[in-house]
Amino acid sequence: MLQLRDDLDRPVADRDADHGFSPRHAALVLAVLAALAVAAIAVFMTYDLRGSLAFALELRAKKVAGMALVGTALGVATVLFHTVSGNRILTPSLMGFDNLYLLIQTGAAFTFGTFAFLSVDVRLRFGLEVVVMMGFALALHRLFLGRARDDVVALLLVGVVLGGMFASLTDLVARLIDPNEYVTLQDQFFASFATVDEELLGVSALAVGAVLVYVWRRTARLDVLALGRDTAVGLGVDHTRTVDRVLMVVALLVSVATALVGPITFLGLLVSNLAYRLVGTFRHRWTLPSAALAGVVALIGAQFAIEEYFAFETRASIVISFIGGTYFIILLLREART
């Protein structure tokens, strides 16, 4: 009887068995995404150039740099957040990160006066905001991620409540600010790609670059982290400390993205899940760069479509939120079925 063991062991769906992950396939995916990103940048920079070439190119270069930075930041932040939260549906923005960023800005403007607030060096302002965001990330870890880790629904609920609360508070504070001042402030919030602040762009690029190097050196540890807390601890990863650091990185990346263009709710969700699907592995050395590149392609693509076909009548973030939101619902339905 025992000799038959291997036959008995064979699962019914043997034909459909997926034989794991192929680095060659993942490398190909990465190359295609990189080519698409380069193509998107090239098209965006050169289509329909009119008037002063130098001026137009400089304007567009700034726009493209902002979009590339935001796409990369949100793609990487979402993958990292998925890894520490152990699911692929929650995103930093669904947990209220970008709403909090707006609240911090509004709150600071209210407390110190809008013009005083805006007159502070943008780099210093941004640095302080990032510190507050990181504090929030740590609190989130202590209060919710640690306890309700395996309960996606509970975490989602926490995110909805936090996000809603931050948005309402922002509204409340906004009403308290002088309306004229608030208009100035709002311009600042939704800077859109057309008016990216050059100094902010510089400091953001530096911060994102440093963080990417930090993350890239720890991809092996992140892979272990993705196996879940108990397995990771068993394999010698200091779970609490590692998750703290990853969440601080997430807070920084989301701050950069929100500071540059305002909230884009579903971009991260869309590009990270696209990346997982395309590379066919959870290994961070593949998922991180592909999510970043997909983010760049999606953002520049959406912006291009808006400028070309919608004549600027809508914002790229709205198009992405619509597509991403639909995808989110599909993901939720699929999750509910399994």
Partner: peptide, 18 residues
């Protein structure tokens, strides 16, 4: 329960991480 999908060989290889 693993939150991610991986092959048997990959899982065993993780045992060498420490």
């Amino acid at each position: 329960h693993l939150p991610v999908r991986l092959a048997v060989g990959e899982l065993v290889a993780f045992g060498r991480f420490p």
